[in-house]
Nucleic acid binder design. Structure first.
Lengths: 174, 174
DNA sequence: CGAAGAAATTTCAAGCTTAAAATTGTTTGG
DNA sequence: CCAAACAATTTTAAGCTTGAAATTTCTTCG
């Protein structure tokens, strides 16, 4: 390290450790990957929103909320819905208000704990949701139609890895 | 397998063509893929929003707007920004108002066509953006850190195919 | 029992987003 | 020239979203 005195000032880059500290890993590949992922997701989401509005005069948040309730015939607690949808609790309040007014949802208070609200699809709400869900599946299928089955499998697998990576990072950062 | 004629009434599924008409392609795989994509993108987006707010008291739309302007030293027309960000024009108006008030952006009217507004980063805005961009790159890098380089390449490639599929579908549907 | 603490939900203030209508400015065909 | 068409942007109305503060209702422990 210090044996050669010919040059009394060595350039920074001769020291591997210093270099590693000063020039961290290039982030460009990850950024491009993230932007591409975001583009795909934004394109699909915008199209789904547009069609829900045009064909059903509805919105994506309402659709998502009903989708959560579809497989819960006995209803679901508000907090549980909020967690599954990954949105703030206050958000659910407003959505439920409107969907209850329009007759899609019923709400009731748990008798044994009056803090707890339980919401469920009404028969009307279920019927409406099923119409939307069928169209929704068609739209997604069409948007993804250019993808070969193999590509779909690979993508599914890689996204699973990405999801694990994200969750691990969130856990580290917490 | 097929040698047994004991049953004179064949089930529906023996007729491939009938089946194809009556039971269209199962959409479940595409739906699962879309939900997984959406989950990844929501997780990353929420985390980026949270950190922009906590570390810079800023928001993702503001960051995105400045990012568009970063590589346009001479500024950009509002409509162009709107297209690149894939948001409605009216949206840009509000964002630009606030970022101009806070000194991050300058705006001017094109002398030869007074309908056209040109916005650009101020030196202050550029400096602020660069701080944010560096942190942003770190966050993304960390969120994606669990992904092996090969997985990143594969994902990049598959997302490119998906993007083409989506755009082709949008073109068909239009 | 009764108060402190925890849990579920709602309210609030601020900001983002969109589509549609309105405004302002430019271009063009008669 | 000038009215109609077109273009860029802003305004408007409605809805979504969030974090933080407030509210209501249990639960627990002294």
């Amino acid at each position: 390290m210090t044996g050669d005195d010919t040059f009394d000032i060595a350039p920074d880059w001769v020291d591997g450790e210093t270099k590693a500290l000063e020039a961290p890993h290039d982030h460009r590949a990850e950024l491009r990957l993230w932007l591409r992922l975001l583009t795909c997701s934004t394109l699909v989401e915008s199209e789904v929103r547009r069609r829900l509005r045009e064909e059903f005069d509805s919105t994506l948040p309402r659709f998502d909320l009903m989708a959560q309730l579809e497989r819960a015939p006995d209803g679901m607690v508000l907090g549980e819905v909020s967690k599954r949808m990954m949105v703030s609790p206050g958000n659910i309040t407003v959505l439920v208000e409107r969907l209850t007014e329009s007759g899609h949802l019923s709400r009731s208070t748990l008798p044994t704990d009056r803090r707890v609200q339980i919401i469920a699809l009404t028969p009307f709400g279920r019927a409406e949701f099923e119409k939307m869900a069928a169209r929704h599946a068609d739209w997604i299928s069409d948007l993804f139609a250019g993808l070969a089955p193999d590509d779909g499998s690979v993508l599914m697998d890689e996204l699973a890895r990405l999801k694990r990576s994200i969750i691990a990072s969130l856990a580290r950062g917490a």
